[in-house]
Design a protein around this nucleic acid. Sequence first.
DNA 1: CGTTTGCGCGAAAACGTTTGGTGATAAATT
DNA 2: AATTTATCACCAAACGTTTTCGCGCAAACG
Lengths: 335, 335
Amino acid sequence: MSIKRIAEMTGLSITTVSHAINGTRAVSQHSKQLVDEAVKKIGYKPNLAAQMLKTNRSHIIALIIPSTEPNNSTNCFFFDVLNGAREKLHASGYDLMVATYSEQEGEKHLANLQVLEKRLVDGVLLVPFDRDVTSLTEIRSLGIPIVLVDRRVENCSLPSVYSDNLEGARKAVHLLAQNGRKRIAFLCGNCEFSTSYDRHLGFLKGMEEAEIPIDENLVFIDLPYQLETGRSIAGVLLKNKIDAVFSANNVLLMGLLQYFNENGISVPQDISVVGFDDYDWMNIASCPITATFQDPYHMGCEAARLMLETLEGKDTHNQRMALPCELILRESHKA
Amino acid sequence: MSIKRIAEMTGLSITTVSHAINGTRAVSQHSKQLVDEAVKKIGYKPNLAAQMLKTNRSHIIALIIPSTEPNNSTNCFFFDVLNGAREKLHASGYDLMVATYSEQEGEKHLANLQVLEKRLVDGVLLVPFDRDVTSLTEIRSLGIPIVLVDRRVENCSLPSVYSDNLEGARKAVHLLAQNGRKRIAFLCGNCEFSTSYDRHLGFLKGMEEAEIPIDENLVFIDLPYQLETGRSIAGVLLKNKIDAVFSANNVLLMGLLQYFNENGISVPQDISVVGFDDYDWMNIASCPITATFQDPYHMGCEAARLMLETLEGKDTHNQRMALPCELILRESHKA
DNA sequence: CGTTTGCGCGAAAACGTTTGGTGATAAATT
DNA sequence: AATTTATCACCAAACGTTTTCGCGCAAACG
C-alpha cells in the first residue's frame, strides 16, 4: 500500500514518486524506471479515497434513471443505455454508478439521492422526469455537470442525447399512408415524457403531410403501459373501423395484438401495424412486426461522450443530439 | 462544507461534533441539539472521501455481471437483479455500482476490474463465469466480501443466491409428462453456466421419474443463444417426431416458435411447449407460452441481504439460497 | 563573470474525517 | 472522606494523496 512505500523502496521522495506516476512534472528517466519497477513489484494502486479528498474528483459518473417495475421491457432499454455509457466511460478511466428515482414523486427529491448527497460523482447522466425545465433547478444547483438522456427538456441548455422520436413517428405514419391506409389509429403513453409527446407530434405531422384528417376517436395518448389497456383499446378501435394502428409503445402493442389474435383479426390483411422499439419477439408474433428502431446502446455512448467533453472543460451548452430512428421493415405494415 | 464549520458554529470541538453526528460516543442533550440545528442550517453532508480514507469503508457495493450484447433479453433479467439489490442496499445506506466483464476471457482478469483495483467497494455481488471454483481464486484473494448471484459455483463456500433451476426444469418435464407427452425434446445453452447445467440435470431427472427413456437425438445442450439456432433445431426435431419441447432458453424458444409458425405446426395440438423465464411476449405468441418463472428482483434482494449480513460480521460461509421456480400455466403445455 | 533559464528533486501543508488518549466535573459507591 | 464510576468534552494523530514553494545545480546567455 501507499506511495510512501514506493518512496522508501526507490529512495526517492513521495513528491517525486507522485509526479513519476502521474506524469505531472518532469522526472528523470532513471527515477521513472525505478518507480515503475517498484509499482509493478508490489502491485501498487493509488488510493482513490485519498485522491478524491485531495482533488475533489472521483472519476465516477452516475446514471440516474426512473425506477421501473420488474420484468418491464423498458428496463432492457435503459440497460443498453447503461452498457453503452459504461463502455465509453471506461475507456477514459471512469466508472459508472446507477441510481434511480421514483416516478411517483417526480424529481422533487432528485437532489436528495444518496449518490449526489455524498458528492461522490463527477457528473450525472440523467433521464429526466418531464419536459419541464423547472424540475431540474434543484439538481442543477448542485453545480455538478449533467447530461440529459433519452428524454428532452424544453428550454434547457443542458447537453442532451435522445432519439429523434418525432421523425421516427412521422416515418411510421408515412409508411402506413404509402400502403394506402387512411384510418390510422395512434397509441402512446404519458406525454409528460418527451418521448411520447414527440411521437404524438410526429404522428400528427405525418398525418397532415399525408393529407389524412385526424379522427380524434382514433388517437389515444397518456395511456398507462399495460397489456390490458392495449386490449381494451383494441376493442374500441375495431368498432371504429380502423385499417391501421401505430403504437408508440410496445406493451400497448402487445395488448393490441393479443386482442386481434383472439378476435380473428389478421395482421396485416385486416389491419396494418407499426410499433416502436425493436424486440426479439417482434420476429415471432403471428405476423412479424414492423417497427422504428432506436439505438439505446449508441445513446449511452453519446451521452458518455458529451459528459467526457464537459469534464474536459469544453463548452457543451445547448449541444443536442437527436439520434435517427430507423424503420425496420417486416410484414405487419403491409396492406 | 466540513465538520469544522459546524464546530465553529456551535462552539464545540470537531471531536464532539463528529460523535454527535455519528452517535459514536455519549454527547449531552444540549450539544446534540446544537449540532443538529447547525447541520440542518447549512445542509451539511459528511465528505465521503474523507470518511473512506479514514475508515476504509465506502458504503458502496459492486454488482459484477457478464457483459452482454445490446437488445438481449438476458439484460432484462440482470437489470431486475440490479434493481432488487439496489433497493435493499439503499435501505441500509449503501449504494450500488455496476461493472461487467467479458465472457470471452472469462474471469481471468476479474480482479483487474477498475472498481476492484481502486479498492472502491466494500463488497461484490458477483455473477460468476463458470461452475469452477478456481476461476475465483484471484478475486477472492482481494479479501473483499463476495456474494455469488444467479450461477452456482461448485465446492465453493461463498454465500450464494440462485434459482432452483434443477427443480424448475423437473417440474416442467413433469407437466409435459402428465399431459401424456413422451417424445420430449430439450434445449439449453452453455453448460459451463450452472443455470443451463442444472436445467439439463432437472430435465434428465424429470424424464427418469416419468419413466421416459432419453432419446439422445432430442437433447441439445451448449447451444448459442440465437434465434437462428432455435430455428434450425426445430427442423431437426420435426423429423424426429417429437410431441413436446422444453426450451431452457427464451431466445432459442423464439426460434423454435418461429419455425413452427412458418411450417404450420400448431402449439399445443401438434407439439406442447414449455419455456423458461417469464416475458410479456409469452402472452401474445400464437399460443400463450407456459414457462417456469424466476424472480430476479427477489434474487437481487436476497443477494443484498446476504451481503449486508456478511458486512455486519455474521458468518455467512456456505450459506446458499435456492429460490423456487414456479410454473406459470398458460396454454402451450396442453396436449 | 554575473545572470538567467531549465531541470530534477524534496519538505511540508493541505484535504475532512475518525478515534485513542486525557482531563474535568459531578454523581455514586465504599 | 476517600475512592470509584459516569458523563461530557477536547487535543492531536492518523488516513494517502496532491500540490505549492523553494533549493541546488548545470547549461545557456549576455
